[in-house]
């Protein structure tokens, strides 16, 4: 017995039912590499044919412990990397996993950055703390499609030099792009910038002609950076941000990541900044 049920898209139109796989069941992959970034942050990589756009995220499972969302930190055919900070049960358990261990993955989810819309623009990429993970995928994308974009300005902020992520990449990007990095407080042996990211952005004196800004980091950092950019003459519709909520199912069902009429997991996590202004609980 088979009964045709209506299948709706979100605009209320009928869609012919396409047999789909169970989206709640994770696929198991072997951890291919584990890089220790800082004392409580690691980056893991695994081989998988899924194509993740910059800014998308995956759900990672350890059965019995749970599942959590992670921004994809890479842009590479057949390979996914993600960065884990030890903040809870799952992330703590992941810290002890080694190359060859199995993890469950689902995804990729979310919209990602509309990179093709950014073509012919300069890119200003701002990342703070673990917010550097999702922008790493953007930078690698820009590297691979170098002729599509103009200048690429990078702004990174970390608490201290010990908290730097992707140290090898940083060296590489330093050579290739307009590279700026700052730490929150003075640190022994550090001769570079000290202070918050927004100060660094303001100092750059960038103008807003043909530029797209991408910001990832804690909500407060996004806010102050956007304010600084406005001072420089940027419009909010030039700025793209990635929001963080508790995304459990990734499918716009469980309701946890809902802000007003948007599911961060499905309508986001990337939003144009002017559209987030009214997204208040």
């Amino acid at each position: 017995m088979h009964h045709e049920l209506p299948c709706w898209n979100r605009y209320g139109q009928h869609n012919k039912f396409i047999k789909m796989k169970n989206l709640y069941v994770p696929e198991f992959v072997e951890i291919d590499k584990v890089v220790k970034e800082t004392k409580d942050i690691i980056t893991m990589g695994f081989r998988h044919p899924m194509r993740a756009l910059p800014g998308q995220f995956i759900e990672v499972s350890l059965l019995g412990i749970g599942e959590a969302p992670f921004g994809v930190a890479s842009y590479r055919e057949g390979y996914i990397e993600f960065t884990v900070r030890n903040v809870g049960n799952l992330t703590r358990a992941l810290q002890s996993r080694k190359k060859g261990d199995k993890i469950g993955v689902r995804g990729p989810f979310g919209n990602g950055f509309p990179m093709t819309d950014f073509v012919n623009n300069d890119l200003i990429i701002i990342g703070g703390g673990t917010g550097v993970a999702p922008v790493r995928s953007v930078i690698i994308y820009a590297e691979k499609h170098r002729n599509q974009f103009g200048e690429v300005h990078l702004f990174f902020g970390f608490r201290s030099p010990e908290e730097f992520l992707y140290k090898k990449d940083l060296e590489n990007w330093k050579r290739k792009f307009q590279f700026n990095i700052t730490i929150d407080k003075p640190h022994r042996g550090w001769k570079g910038n000290v202070g918050f990211l927004n100060q660094l952005v303001e100092k750059s004196r960038l103008n807003n002609t043909r530029k797209i800004v991408i910001i990832c980091g804690p909500p407060i950092m996004i806010e102050v950076c956007a304010a600084s950019l406005q001072k420089l003459g940027f419009n909010n519709d030039q700025i793209f941000v990635s929001l963080e909520r508790l995304m459990q199912c990734g499918l716009g069902k469980c309701g946890h990541c809902m802000i007003n009429d948007k599911y961060v997991c499905r309508d986001g996590p990337v939003f144009r900044y002017d559209k987030t202004i009214n997204l208040k609980d």
């Binding site: 049920l5 299948c7 709706w8 898209n9 979100r10 209320g12 869609n15 169970n22 989206l23 499918l251």
Partner: peptide
């Protein structure tokens, strides 16, 4: 509930099965 749980590309297998049966 169908509009939410049977939405194209985001379909909930468990809900669909019960609806169909």
């Amino acid at each position: 509930m169908d509009t939410l749980f049977l939405e194209a590309n985001f379909e909930d297998t468990y809900y669909r099965k019960k609806r169909e049966n």
